[in-house]
Design a protein around this nucleic acid. Structure first.
Length: 801
DNA sequence: GCCCATCCTATTTTT
DNA sequence: TAGGATGGGC
């Protein structure tokens, strides 16, 4: 293929090595901006075009749907639509969903199984917890789900859960019940998509002498299909995903993984950096390629990034370099508070626009979404259009979920969660009591909720439901039946959706309301129906039969990053809406690049984000560091990711104080600012506007904010170190003795602490002593960052050198 | 059955 | 501080 050959010329040596690799395991360390996507797509194109591998035998796994879409697009350009269409490109979840649809029997599902999202899981668990009479103060549905999620990410089945307490027993029994209910509802949660496929592909090879069962056969057939497997963002895979790819390639070992341990930022949700760091050990003979030349950023930006990441421990040694121009100095801008910071951001964007830089070429990043509000205000004040990536998904809106629930119930009458959601939406006089009674009857007779409801409504099943309520149930069941009937007789999904809006009274209900909100909801519903039509068109173009299940699968796997939420005050006017500033969290920015990047909130405890927890210093994580240390390492990588998003200009903002969670906090400049190379940085000090500038490293930072917090950690804070920050928050006093607490005998010597000493408390971290109250049990008044003034018994404090 | 008040909590978030 | 969740009262 000439397209493929043509590009080979402008690949550098390691890139070429990765692209032309064919058989066996391959590990590509792809530094930020090193042309990773090109390498991946060319490699796939090379397999198809040069080596004649049939596209359907190649599986490429990406981290998001968006990434999958972009990869597919590029491959279409390289290979042509015909060939590219048959490639398997998708996220782990989308890929597994597709496999599961094909092998649903072996996995024990119908072809029309539904995918339960967080909210569905939650409502299912809420019900279980309620039925089991669990004391939710002890154990909330939320925490049960999060534990189940953690188990499932490690492929730990209920019977394998270690039990050390009655509480564990309870969690396990809830886990078991949850699994049972999912099965009964013909439903998978997100983790299940992967787990069920894992159970198939991890089966042993079929034995020639014995009759293999359906699972074994399915597993073999899945493994046999994929001859070449490629996984992008490998540093973010979790245990199940890792086992999945291992199992998939076990016959041939044709596994190429691409990633960067320096950009591993999802440890907190189960990703295991050891997957990439230990790859060469797990796959002996793996070819290892390092892409270290950065094509994206100026030399100064690359050096800044390197300076920050170089301090990371436990890295695979890599040397990112660039032959790009030096470029502009990295600018550090100090603001008084978050409003000032936002103001400076907005002013900068305006100024740059005047100089010819489009807003769409600039991104504003923050560590937490909570920071976006103030930024939005400042941008609105200047009438700068912006959009926020992330946040509430279109498919998470209540009205959208309601309509989807109608559709899901149509496609899968067993889905009790969906029935419960819509049985009284819009209100039709079917209250909680009635629903509870029906559900009780359903459980007692082993029926689904809908079946039980139908029987109760017809008076064939006694559930203690009054005649009037039965009548309403009957009307509701009739609606569902009508929709299901229309579906069964082949009406397209969009028509069913429209029918659902009419018959359910949903549309009429919203129209009556006559509020702006109702208007928006109607619009959203219209948009949903529109997107179903769109789906029908793509399906028919692909020669597939459009179905509710098909559409639902798309929506279930869509993320908020896939479709940014537009917040564009000028969009209504239309004219400027293409030139829009982007706001997002650093996480959401991974994989993107912008000409100019503004990173806000570079203050200790915010970025790096530090949440002191008891176990942080004591519990050791998988890497051998304490949890607190690991968390900090990840923050460092996050800073690295943020910095490397910038091509030409990088601006770093920090504020002297900001209100966070309703509390005023004084924040010292982030340690990441301190790490920057002196010669590449320009400082803009606050107060005097941008005129007071000086070149030079942040290491010498002594200005504002410093008075409160003398720097005492120039060579990097020890992991246990917490920056002392004053707090103007409300005065808090802890009880001198907690109820039930034992009195510990101690010497009555005079207290050894003095005003000004630094002390550490198990929960509050490091603080400074303000007052000492001598006595048999000396009390200390001390000030802790984020907690304010606390009065604490001496024995609960530990002096800090 | 609906609405309002109060309480609680609070990184990052894909699928 | 602010938003969502929950529960009590009408």
């Amino acid at each position: 293929m000439s397209n493929v050959e043509a590009v080979a010329d402008d690949l550098n040596e390691p890139q070429l090595e990765a692209v032309t690799h064919v058989e066996g395991p391959l590990l590509v360390f792809a530094g930020a901006g090193s042309g990773k996507t090109r390498v991946i797509t060319y490699r796939i194109a090379n397999l198809v075009a040069t080596h004649g591998v049939p596209p359907y035998r190649i599986l490429a796994v990406t981290f998001t749907n968006k990434a999958a879409g972009e990869m597919r697009e590029r491959l279409e350009r390289l290979l042509g639509e015909g060939l590219a269409r048959d490639l398997w490109v998708g996220t782990f979840h989308a890929t597994c969903a597709r496999i599961l649809r094909k092998h649903h029997d072996a996995a024990g599902f119908s072809r029309r199984f539904v995918i339960y999202d967080d909210a569905d899981q939650r409502s299912l668990m809420d019900r279980i917890v309620k039925e089991r009479d669990v004391d939710t103060d002890e154990l909330s549905a939320r925490s049960v789900l999060s534990r189940i999620h953690a188990f499932k990410q490690e492929a730990v089945a209920p019977e394998d859960v270690p039990r050390n307490s009655r509480r564990d027993d309870l969690v396990v029994s809830l886990y078991e019940e949850y699994e049972k209910r999912l099965r009964a509802a013909d439903a998978c949660d997100f983790d299940d998509l992967l787990l069920h496929v894992l159970r198939l592909v991890e089966r042993p090879d079929p034995d020639a002498h014995e009759q293999p069962d359906a699972k074994t056969l399915a597993g073999a057939s899945i493994r046999a299909q994929f001859r070449y497997v490629l996984v992008d963002e490998f540093q973010d895979t979790n245990a199940v995903q890792y086992r999945l790819v291992r199992a998939l390639v076990r016959a041939h070992g044709n596994l190429a993984v691409v990633g960067d341990d320096d950009q591993s930022i999802y440890r907190w949700r189960g990703a295991d950096v050891r997957n990439i760091r230990g790859f060469a050990k797990d796959f002996p003979g793996a070819q290892v390629v390092k892409l270290e030349q950065n094509y994206r950023s100026t030399a100064r930006i690359v050096r800044a990034a390197l300076a920050v990441i170089a301090k990371g421990r436990e890295r695979v040694p890599k040397e990112l370099w660039t032959s790009n121009v030096e470029g502009e100095l990295v600018e550090v801008k100090s603001a008084v508070d978050e409003r000032d910071e936002a103001q400076k951001v907005a002013a900068y964007v305006d100024a740059r626009q005047a100089e010819g830089v489009a807003r769409s070429e600039i991104a504003v990043l923050y560590r937490t979404h909570a920071q976006s509000r103030v930024l939005e205000e400042a941008l609105r004040a200047r009438r700068i259009p912006y959009r926020i990536v992330g946040g509430l998904r279109f498919f998470d809106r209540a009205e959208v979920k309601d309509l989807l629930a109608y559709l899901r119930l149509c496609a899968n009458p067993k889905s009790d969660v969906d029935l419960a959601r819509i049985v009284n939406v819009p209100a039709r006089g079917i209250g909680a009591t009635t629903v509870d009674r029906v559900q009780l009857a359903a459980r007692n007779h082993g029926l689904t909720s809908l079946e039980a409801m139908r029987e109760v409504a017809r008076g064939k099943l006694e559930a203690g439901v009054a005649a009037a309520a039965r009548k309403r149930l009957l009307a509701f069941v009739a609606i569902v039946d009508e929709l299901a009937g229309a579906e069964a007789s082949g009406h397209p999904p969009s028509e069913i959706a429209q029918l659902a809006l009419e018959r359910s009274g949903y549309e009429a209900h919203l129209r009556e309301e006559q509020t702006d909100e109702a208007q928006t909801r109607l619009q959203n519903l219209g948009e949903l129906v529109g997107s179903i039509r769109e789906y029908e068109q793509t399906a028919s173009a692909a020669g597939e039969q459009a179905s509710i299940t098909g559409f639902l699968e798309r929506t279930a796997l869509v993320s908020s990053v896939d479709e940014p939420r537009g917040e564009d005050p000028l969009a209504r006017g239309g004219a400027w809406s293409d030139d829009v500033l982007t706001l997002m969290s650093v996480h959401a920015a991974k994989g993107l690049e912008f000409r100019e990047v503004l990173i806000t909130g570079l203050e200790e405890d915010l970025f790096p984000f530090v949440r002191q927890r008891d176990e942080d210093d004591a519990v050791f994580g998988p890497t051998g560091l304490t949890r607190g240390e690991e968390a900090l390492e990840e923050e460092r990588r996050l800073a690295y990711v943020a910095i490397t998003r910038a091509r030409e200009r990088l601006l770093l903002f920090h504020a002297g104080h900001r209100t966070l969670f309703g509390q005023l906090r004084y924040g010292r400049p982030s340690r990441f600012l301190v790490d920057l190379p002196r010669d590449d940085v320009k400082l803009s000090l606050p107060g005097a506007g941008d005129s007071a500038q000086r070149t030079g490293g942040y290491g010498g930072y002594g200005g504002y904010g410093g008075a409160r917090a003398a720097r005492d950690d120039d060579d990097g804070p020890s992991p246990a170190f917490r920056h002392p920050m004053a707090s103007a928050g409300p005065k808090v006093t802890t009880p001198v003795r907690e109820p039930g607490e034992r009195y510990v005998e101690r010497d009555d010597d005079a207290c050894d602490l003095r005003r000004g000493d630094r002390v550490r408390h198990k929960r509050f971290g490091v603080g400074r002593v303000l007052e000492v109250e001598e006595g048999a049990e000396p009390k200390i008044v001390a000030e802790f960052s984020g907690f304010g003034e606390m009065t604490i018994l001496r024995r609960f404090l530990e002096p800090v050198a």
